[in-house]
Design a binder for these strands. Structure first.
Lengths: 338, 338
DNA sequence: CTGTTAGCGCATTCAG
DNA sequence: CTGAATGCGCTAACAG
């Protein structure tokens, strides 16, 4: 209750006329202490306002109950959903979450990893700032050398060898292309059969896979659909600018496929900007565009279950922490929502 | 580099033929060590893959570089924005964030506080599960007794005496009501002059303030606008259900005012469900309904700058941590966006 | 069931 | 500028 010094186990010991270790046991392994002394100790702890010192405990036991989450953008709804899921499940296993939002900055990402190593985190769930193969941050070595479990989420470091939970990106591309082919493109005529894909960075593995999915589906179909690809980034303004520039130079395509939520929104905004009714062509996306049904709007999207992805990541991390040596990859497949 | 034991300061000391303390100094207060030995030590540290042990350091210095963030819903975009802002600014002051998503569960909230006390967090930014005055969790005592700085964010514990960053809720209500009066309600006739307010929980201080703002504005206007209030919670399904029930029993009001993003969306969905064109009446809300402009939809809203609120909260926390004894309250005013 | 001893890794005394 | 001793708070390991 006193605001001055912190109450330690020793204070309680003095208070009840026992030794430290007995107090420690009464608090952590109650069954090892006689019922009445246990009572006395626990009551004293409560009355004195005892708060265990997590640092001292972790130092002694050299195992922390900490899990790190490193992500580039907590304000991306898909990531927020995954983080919520991780947080919820971590709590069930008595782990606290240390969160790092790297804001797309590799330097911050590296510092985040160092912090986690420093805090002896039992594991990290990592979604790097980019998944381009060139990105080979030097913390990979530090991570691989240590005993910290690692699970990558959504974005992966090329060839890092860590476990991962990723989306089925090829399938997502395939699925959207299939939708476009079956329902849409077949109904159009001649040179209208043009699909505009608005992708992320040209080197992004995720974008490449999604595009591969599209191409694989088109190839199987023996159609004469032409694909134009705009490379950019996973944000709205750039996607909007790219699409605007495209529309200024080429005829309106039969369909547009946006590779994530923000890209799709950017493309739609560009259409509007050019005075083109979005219903005059077909737009599909990846990731949910929430609440549009309320306004009678429907944009078909391939959506992935972020809650599930988060859970899978945490479970994978726990098995790694339990000693499973071989890295595993879990693939989460989405579904087309119309 | 070795995967076995962690390398400590002592290993480095042995390696370079110095003692622990010199190594410690070379790493933390380089100016206290001769240049060449400092070099040797720092190089050895790098080569051996030394990682400082944050626990040992914190234990010794009894000051952690940890700030706790406790919130009910990281997946609420407004909260996500605030958390991102907190995270970004905390990093600038070399603090790491420990995040707790309480998921609306008071028990989890209490555990989160205990964890933070246990980790000797320098401060907490707290947004409790509810702001109803009845909610007086017993961790308040523990918090007040200790030396941890506390700043409440958005939602506050009634009479807790902690610093806070809150929204100007009265003003938000006033502002929306003003808009409705000036632009809208005056144009309607007789018994059509009915405003439906869809609020949060009946005891929520925030909802009460927003409602007070509405009533104050209406009172000042000497108008004959009647207000119906639906109490509920800050989520979509309940708001939708309440509004649906209202529409089943009463004539369509001249306007609907939703007290947060999800409530407004719920109300709009109820309208749609009842086959009522939302443009046949006036709908205003609090919180942004993002991206609707892309679809040519406009729902006027009072929006608050979450990024700023987060920054203010962190700054307030830092001043508290620096010893400022008197609690302060910062009020963030929103603006009407049409 | 309880106590003694010892040490986790680091940084603060105080001496050289 | 460098070192020796000491302790932060807690809990193994081994007694008793």
């Amino acid at each position: 209750m006193s605001a001055g010094k912190r109450v330690t186990i020793a204070d309680i010991a003095r208070h009840v006329g026992m030794t430290n270790i007995t107090v420690s046991r009464a608090l952590n392994r109650p069954e090892m202490v006689r019922a009445d002394t246990r009572e006395r100790i626990q009551r004293a702890a409560r009355e004195l306002g005892y708060v265990p010192n997590a640092f001292a405990r972790a130092l002694k036991r050299s195992d922390s109950r900490l899990i790190g989450v490193v992500t580039a953008s907590i304000d991306n709804p898909f990531y927020a959903e995954m983080i919520k899921s991780i947080s919820r499940h971590a709590k069930q296993h008595d782990y606290a979450i240390m969160l790092f939002d790297t804001d797309g900055d590799p330097a911050l990402e590296s510092m985040a990893i160092d912090s986690l190593l420093s805090y002896q985190a039992a594991g990290v769930i990592l979604s790097p700032v980019t998944d381009e193969p060139d990105y080979q941050p030097d913390y990979i070595k530090r991570l691989a050398a240590g005993s910290m479990a690692v699970v990558q989420l959504d974005r992966t470091l090329h060839d890092s060898g860590f476990s991962a939970v990723v989306l089925d990106n090829v399938w997502a591309g395939d699925c959207a292309a299939h939708y476009l082919l079956e329902r849409v493109l077949v109904q159009r005529s001649g040179n209208q059969r043009r699909l505009l894909v608005v992708a992320g960075p040209e080197q992004s593995q995720i974008s490449r896979q999604r595009l591969a999915g599209v191409q694989q589906r088109l190839a199987g179909h023996e159609s004469d659909v032409a694909v134009d690809v705009l490379w950019g980034d996973y944000n709205l303004p750039l996607a909007q600018a790219e699409v605007a520039r495209y529309l200024a130079h080429y005829p309106v395509p039969a369909a547009i496929f946006g590779f994530n939520q923000l890209i799709t929104l950017g493309a739609l905004r560009a259409l509007r900007e050019h005075g083109i009714d979005r219903r005059s062509l077909d737009v599909v996306g990846i990731d949910r565009l929430p609440y549009l049904d309320i306004f009678g709007i429907s944009v078909p999207c391939v959506v992935h279950d972020g809650y599930r992805a988060g859970r899978e990541a945490l479970e994978l991390l726990l098995t790694q922490m339990a000693g499973e040596p071989s890295p595993r990859t879990v693939i989460v497949r989405g579904e087309l929502l119309q």
